[in-house]
Amino acid sequence: MAALPEEDVGQDFKTNESSTINPAGLDPTQRKPRVLLAACGCHAARDFGLVCQSFVTWAEVRAVLTNDAWRFVNRSLVPPDGSVTLHLDSQQWLFWQKHGYGLHVELQKWADIMVIFPMSANTIAKMLGGLCDNLLTSIIRIWDYQKTLYSVPSLEPSMWNTTLTMKQIQSLRKLGSIVIIKTGEIPEPDAVSDVVRLHYLSNR
């Protein structure tokens, strides 16, 4: 069975950066892009703090963690300076009680970009099936695909080259998500951050 096609880091993402633009490639007179990061319950979520560290260098960041992801996350890696606001499933009902609508609505409106890194096989299936049984999948359910959603799957090696996985990856792309894959392993946070930043710059 053929391997899943890879989306090489940097592929098709180019930008012309002028000398008036800062090292992140962003105009300092304009607000930073708003990136909603999300983590699912899989082993790769242990390094989610490193993902946050990579994105806060150039973006305003909020993070959504499923209950299972929260069990894996190495919390000592999450930036301690308050630069990343964490949102958990338990906040959904509390927000509803206070405002009369769900936190998922607020976060979807706030975000310019969403990056699910890592994305578990379970959440891939939920997303394609339209399930919305937690904060993350509720955001996905109402996502506005005029804005960009990135999926960075993290699967066990035995799951990658199966017919079901291949069909699901193709379905994610047809739905409108950009899927970033490094076959056989999870991409480095800095590499994914660079892909998202350069894509954002090229589409401004």
Rank of each mutant, 00 (worst) to 15 (best):
V84M: 07
V152C: 15
V9G: 07
W160E: 06
R71S: 08
S171R: 14
M119G: 02
D144V: 05
T148C: 13
A24L: 04
N161S: 05
A38S: 14
V56S: 11
L36E: 12
P187T: 02
Q91T: 01
P157E: 12
R71N: 11
Y101L: 07
S120V: 01
E188N: 06
K98T: 08
D47M: 09
I180K: 14
N161P: 00
Q91Y: 03
D89W: 01
I139Y: 03
T15Q: 09
V35T: 10
Q11A: 15
I142T: 13
Q97I: 01
L77N: 10
H43W: 01
D112P: 02
E6Q: 09
W96C: 01
S54N: 13
V196H: 12
H199M: 13
P189V: 02
V78F: 09
D12F: 12
V64L: 15
V35P: 06
L36S: 09
T20S: 12
W58C: 04
W160A: 02
T66K: 08
V73A: 05
E17N: 11
S158T: 04
A3H: 11
I142V: 15
E156W: 00
I178L: 14
D133S: 09
A39H: 06
V73C: 09
V192M: 07
T85A: 12
L26Q: 12
M127S: 14
A24T: 10
C40M: 06
S120D: 09
L50P: 00
L131V: 02
E6Y: 01
W58Y: 12
E7D: 13
T20N: 14
S171I: 00
I181A: 11
D12Y: 15
Q97M: 13
S76C: 02
F72G: 10
D27K: 06
K182F: 00
L128D: 12
P28I: 03
R204K: 14
Q168L: 07
S19A: 10
P157V: 06
N203E: 15
V179F: 06
W93Y: 12
Q53Y: 01
I140C: 15
T162I: 02
R46P: 00
